[in-house]
């Protein structure tokens, strides 16, 4: 079986491609080839040992869907792709829209629907949560800088300023909020989300929904060590039935199909979980779930090819991941190969 996977950008704010591949490779059922789909010629996963077998540059989502489809057709002619697993937030709309065309080409996907992507989008999450009685920090939207000024009376500091796809800053005063607005909007567009800052510990859940309301697996993690961007650099699996039940309920409310990461903060005062975000793909730490006994990436692959997949009911508590960086050495010839030909055989 040939599986194409994106998100090999294993950098300090990593894409989930490499751990997803690692999970699939460790599944006893898997035999075949892993094709890395990369947006940049220096995505580390394309050069790492035992990750992808071959890599192809593909056009950015913003270059238009026809272009992406053309490129995928070209790659499919050479590689006969069975399943594509996109793993980056910003490309999911595009792949979701292309899924029927990919199916016609014989390529399977296991993606959230367009509506699911919309309901969980960062600017809509608040409404979704309120509708279904999930606790959620208060949210304001700014579609221009003048909006932000208009909202200035309603914002209490500190507050969280978030982009629609990526990026978040904590602003302690209005000037910082304006700075964060410009930083985020120039990169990720509008609107900008201004979110109530709930003080407390953060907890994350990696999960897989089957698209019919059921959760195939879910593993909860507490961050032990974070980077200046708030990304987990180390984390530990924890056991809290309330958190897992809450995750199940959210996945049921959305009929979520595909992998996801649910982010919560446990309010210091009330001890209640507030839903911060639903990321529509596995987190970069998803290999911790694999190590704790729930191979969610391999399970997603099974669902994609309509193979039976048992539900996971438990996982090992106290498993820790520690991310590390490692300087991989390669040669200018490799860079030339990928830059000029757009493809690179790994190893």
């Amino acid at each position: 079986m040939n599986i194409a996977i994106t998100g090999l950008n294993n950098v300090d704010s990593p894409g989930p491609g490499v751990p997803v591949i690692r999970g699939i490779r460790e599944s006893k059922e898997f035999t075949g080839k892993i094709i890395g789909l990369i947006y940049d010629s220096l995505e580390p996963g394309a050069y790492m040992k035992d990750v992808s077998d071959i890599n192809y540059l593909i056009p950015y989502p913003s270059a238009g869907l026809d272009n992406l489809l053309e490129r995928l057709k070209f790659i499919n002619d050479k590689e006969k792709i069975d399943v594509i697993i996109p793993t980056l937030d910003s490309e999911l709309y595009g792949f979701a829209k292309l899924s029927s065309k990919l199916e016609e080409m014989g390529i399977k996907t296991f993606l959230p629907t367009f509506d699911q992507l919309n309901f969980r989008a960062k600017d809509k999450l608040f409404d979704f949560a309120v509708k279904h009685n999930f606790k959620v920090p208060k949210n304001l939207l700014a579609t221009s800088i003048s909006d932000l000024y208009k909202l200035s009376d309603e914002i209490t500091f500190p507050t969280v300023i978030k982009g629609i796809f990526y990026d978040a800053y904590i602003a302690h005063n209005f000037e910082e909020a304006v700075g964060a607005f410009h930083k985020i909007s120039s990169k990720w567009g509008l609107p900008i989300i201004i979110q109530e800052f709930v003080k407390g510990q953060e907890y994350n859940v990696a999960a897989l929904g089957d698209g019919n309301g059921d959760t195939v697996g879910a593993v909860a993690m507490k961050k032990l060590y974070i980077t200046d961007k708030g990304k987990a650099w180390a984390g530990i699996t924890i056991n809290d039935p309330i958190l897992i039940k809450l995750s199940d309920d959210i996945i049921k409310a959305l009929n979520w199909k595909s992998g996801c990461e649910l982010e919560f903060v446990k309010d210091e005062k009330s001890n209640e979980y507030y839903l911060l975000e639903i990321n529509p793909r596995f987190p970069a730490w998803v290999y911790l779930a694999v190590a704790a006994g729930q191979n969610l990436p391999a399970a997603l692959l099974n669902l994609a090819i309509s193979k039976d997949q048992q539900k996971f009911t438990s996982y090992e508590i106290g498993k820790i991941f520690i991310r590390y960086s490692w300087d991989l050495i390669t040669d200018i010839r490799k860079l030339e190969e990928i830059t000029v030909k757009g493809e690179l055989i790994n190893g």
């Binding site: 947006y39 940049d40 010629s41 220096l42 540059l57 593909i58 056009p59 950015y60 270059a63 238009g64 026809d66 272009n67 053309e70 490129r71 830059t339 757009g342």
Partner: peptide
């Protein structure tokens, strides 16, 4: 000039 982390030619050529 190859600017890593920016558009590459496969990212933009068909556009």
């Amino acid at each position: 000039k190859q600017q890593m982390g920016f558009m590459n030619k496969f990212g933009s050529a068909p556009a």
